[in-house]
Amino acid sequence: SDLEELEKFAKTFKQRRIKLGFTQGDVGLAMGKLYGNDFSQTTISRFEALNLSFKNMCKLKPLLEKWLNDAESSP
C-alpha cells in the first residue's frame, strides 16, 4: 500500500541520510537551495517519524528521493 511504501522510504531515508553524514537540518537547508522550498529540521524529523499528514508525506517523498539520489551521486 501507499502507506507501507512511505513507511519503508522514511526508514531507508533516515538510514541513508545518517550514513551520508547529513543532519536533518542539513537536508532542510539543502532542499531549500535546490528546490526553493525551505524545510525546517522539524519537518524532516517529523517525516522520518511518520509524524506528518499522509498528504504532506506524499508531497515530500519525491523531493526527498531526489535529494537523496543527488546526495549519493555527488562525489
Rank of each mutant, 00 (worst) to 15 (best):
R46I: 01
P75T: 15
C58V: 11
L68E: 02
L29S: 12
N56M: 14
S53F: 01
N51T: 13
L52V: 04
I44V: 09
C58Y: 13
E48H: 00
A71H: 15
K55D: 14
P75Y: 01
S73F: 08
A49Q: 15
Q41S: 12
E5K: 14
L63D: 04
R16V: 03
K55A: 12
L68V: 09
P62E: 06
L60M: 08
L50I: 05
L3R: 15
M57R: 01
A49I: 02
P62Y: 01
Q41H: 12
N69E: 12
D70T: 15
K61P: 01
Q41Y: 08
P75R: 09
G36C: 05
E72V: 09
P62I: 07
L29P: 02
R46M: 12
F54T: 13
L29M: 15
S74M: 06
P75H: 09
L52P: 00
K66I: 06
L29T: 07
F54S: 09
E65N: 09
S45M: 10
F47A: 01
N37K: 11
L64F: 06
L50G: 14
L52Y: 05
D70W: 06
S74G: 07
F54W: 11
L68Q: 03
P75W: 05
S73C: 07
L63K: 10
D26N: 05
K66P: 02
I18L: 11
L60G: 01
L64P: 01
L63F: 04
A71E: 12
K55P: 05
G28S: 04
S45Q: 13
A49K: 03
E72C: 08
I44K: 00
S45C: 14
F54I: 12
T12R: 11
G28A: 09
L29A: 14
Q24A: 02
E65Y: 04
F54D: 08
R17V: 00
N56F: 09
S73V: 10
E72R: 06
L50R: 13
A10G: 08
N69I: 13
N69W: 13
G25Y: 15
E5V: 07
D70Y: 11
A71T: 12
M57I: 03
D26V: 04
L63N: 11
A71F: 09
P62H: 11
D26L: 04
N37V: 11
I18Y: 05
P75C: 08
L52A: 06
E65L: 09
A71L: 13
E5W: 06
K66V: 08
P75V: 15
E65I: 14
N37H: 14
K66Y: 06
E5C: 12
I44P: 00
K61G: 04
N56G: 09
M31V: 02
E65R: 04
C58F: 13
N56Q: 15
F54Q: 11
L29C: 14
E48V: 00
A49F: 03
N69T: 14
L68S: 03
L64D: 02
L52C: 07
L60C: 10
